[in-house]
């Protein structure tokens, strides 16, 4: 079997008429950790859905773990972690039940799970550090705990490839660090990881490979090589600049100060009365 886990070859993809992605070529080898970046609406999530059979392939071909992927036929061995806000946080399920659902497709067609299945779910929760929460309703979880639960659900399918859609959006800095540390551990254990993110500086500092997307693949490679002013302009448009920190990692900042209006004097006819200017250095700090 090829060492390529993902093989996207000259693909045009669409949900309906307008093409969302065109002429996309991406290969991901086993054991890689890849960050997909790009502005909102650029096609990052679509690229993930391309790998899970969630979007129509107009031309070209998609292979995941040696299986040809077409719309409606997700490949086996892929775990998917959606954005945090995508489900009802108050849904009446326990943490263990959510993890068990991860392998529902291959479970016996009866309403209950076997002892072995429950034991396996508990082992996954232990591995992800939330074993003691197995019997808790999901409504009682924090953002970080919920991400761990979804990771356990993704792994319940004996996944070799883990796809994550903006796993750090909407969480605080401590939770972000916790989720990323966990992903690092899973990657270290041999899992191939592909995630989308808006956090360019996280990608630059921590990931070995980034793919810049905006309707097509703009650039693909090591962040130190890819993250240039030219690539960022072609991906995001003007307004960003790249500096380097003391370790030589690229750091993205705003190219010019952003004027922030702090208030409006209604008595003076609605004219702004105070303004602050934030410099890139302050944003960094």
């Amino acid at each position: 079997m090829s060492d390529l886990v993902v093989r996207v070859l000259d693909v045009d993809a669409a949900y309906a008429r307008p093409t969302v992605l065109s002429a996309v070529d991406v290969d991901v080898a086993r054991g890689e950790f890849v960050g997909l970046v790009g502005p909102s609406g650029a096609g990052k999530t679509t690229l993930l859905r391309l790998l899970t059979g969630g979007v129509e392939v107009r031309s070209g071909s998609v292979e995941v773990l040696g299986q040809r992927v077409v719309r409606g036929r997700p490949p086996r061995g892929v775990g998917y972690v959606p954005q945090l806000g995508s489900v009802d946080a108050d849904f009446p399920l326990t943490v263990r039940e959510v993890v068990l659902l991860g392998d529902a497709a291959s479970s016996r067609p009866v309403p209950w799970f076997t002892r072995d299945e429950r034991r396996r779910a508990d082992a996954l929760l232990e591995r992800l550090g939330i074993g003691e929460l197995a019997g808790r309703p999901i409504a009682e979880l924090s953002g970080g705990q919920r991400q761990r639960m979804f990771l356990a659900r993704a792994l319940a399918r004996r996944s070799e490839l883990l796809l994550l859609d903006e796993p750090t959006s909407g969480v605080d800095l401590a939770t972000r660090a916790e989720v990323l540390r966990l992903l690092g551990e899973l990657h270290h254990d041999g899992l191939t990881v592909v995630l989308t993110t808006h956090d360019l500086n996280f990608v630059a500092s921590h990931l070995p490979r980034m793919v810049c997307v905006n309707g097509t693949v703009i650039a693909d490679g090591r962040p130190r090589e890819v993250m240039t002013a030219d690539v960022l302009t072609r991906t995001y448009g003007p307004g960003l600049r790249v500096v380097h920190d003391e370790d030589g990692h690229p750091v993205v900042t705003d190219a010019a100060p952003i004027p922030l209006h702090s208030g409006t004097d209604h008595a003076s006819g609605g004219m702004p009365v105070a303004a602050a200017v934030v410099t890139p250095a302050e944003v960094d700090a």
Partner: peptide, 26 residues
């Protein structure tokens, strides 16, 4: 409902991920 119970619960809870995880959501 008995036969489809687990797949139905997954579909109701999170249809996008259920589809990726092999549940015939449609």
């Amino acid at each position: 409902l008995f036969v489809a119970y687990k797949r139905l619960v997954f579909t109701v809870f999170d249809p996008e991920v259920a589809a990726v995880h092999g549940v015939p959501v449609r």
